[in-house]
């Protein structure tokens, strides 16, 4: 347990020392969200209609953008080999790294989401739903992305591969995340969508731990 804790502390410290990386996801999220009104026009009703989709897609792309750094630095400087040799189960260490990735990409996006929602004039009663949906959905994005990031370590054209591998896996999260906010805007019950997002998170946890660890072991063979 203390080993995992040390890994989390180390990764967090590394992320905090390199603030550029930390800000990339959030800045990308806010800037692209702010770009769309210029492309579509400032009509408030139209913006409100597309706000859930835009906010979710930009959040998804922002997470995707930050996925590459999840294992790449460790793989390049050889600390990944030490993690593979460590007595702690690799599955748990994958989850620890994903936790740090979420804390440095998903959480900042979540915290800046009210600002982006403000740009689109999202009503106050829909904001908690958006935040809850993002809180349940973005960890799944980090988890599923971790598998793809581990699989593409050492691959040629890794940067193009990553979106290709993750896009199909991200679609359910996107569908239910947007559906939750849409339901709240239309005055329907948001509970089923949030429950499904939670279910996706619970499925992604073991899938990402097992497949991520299997993929990392392959890099050492």
């Amino acid at each position: 347990m203390s080993g995992l804790w040390a890994l989390i502390r180390r990764d967090l410290r590394l992320a905090l020392r390199q603030r550029g990386d930390l800000l990339t996801a959030v800045l990308f999220f806010l800037l692209t969200a702010a770009l769309f009104p210029f492309g579509i026009g400032p009509e408030p009703n139209l913006l409100l209609r597309i706000a859930p989709g835009i906010l979710w897609v930009t959040a998804l792309l922002a997470v995707l953008l930050s996925l590459e750094r999840l294992f790449l630095a460790d793989w390049e400087d050889g600390s990944l080999d030490l993690l593979l040799l460590a007595p702690q189960p690799l599955e748990a260490m994958v989850l620890a790294k994903v936790l740090v990735h979420w804390l440095t990409s998903g959480l900042p996006i979540l915290l800046s989401a009210p600002l982006a929602a403000l740009l689109y004039g999202l009503p106050a009663h829909a904001l908690p739903v958006l935040l809850l949906a993002l809180a349940l959905g973005t960890p799944s994005l980090s988890l599923l992305g971790a598998t793809a990031a581990a699989l593409t370590l050492g691959a040629r054209r890794g940067g193009v591969l990553l979106p290709l591998l993750t896009m199909p896996l991200y679609i359910p999260v996107l569908v239910f995340g947007v559906a939750a906010v849409d339901a709240s805007l239309a005055g329907f019950s948001v509970r089923p969508h949030l429950l499904l997002l939670g279910a996706l998170l619970l499925v992604s946890l073991p899938v990402a731990a097992l497949s991520g660890a299997a993929a990392l072991r392959q890099t050492a063979e």
Binding site: L144, T147, A148, L151, T152, A155, L165, P168, L169, I171, P172, V175, F176, A179, L196, L200, V203, V207, S211, A214, A215, Q218, E221
Partner: peptide, 25 residues
């Protein structure tokens, strides 16, 4: 081959979920 085997298995877990979510959609 081994990397894409992991991906194929992850995809086979996800295919029913994707199918279901898109049906819902």
């Amino acid at each position: 081959q081994r990397a894409s085997a992991v991906l194929a298995l992850v995809g086979s877990v996800n295919l029913p979920i994707i199918k279901f979510s898109v049906d819902w959609w």
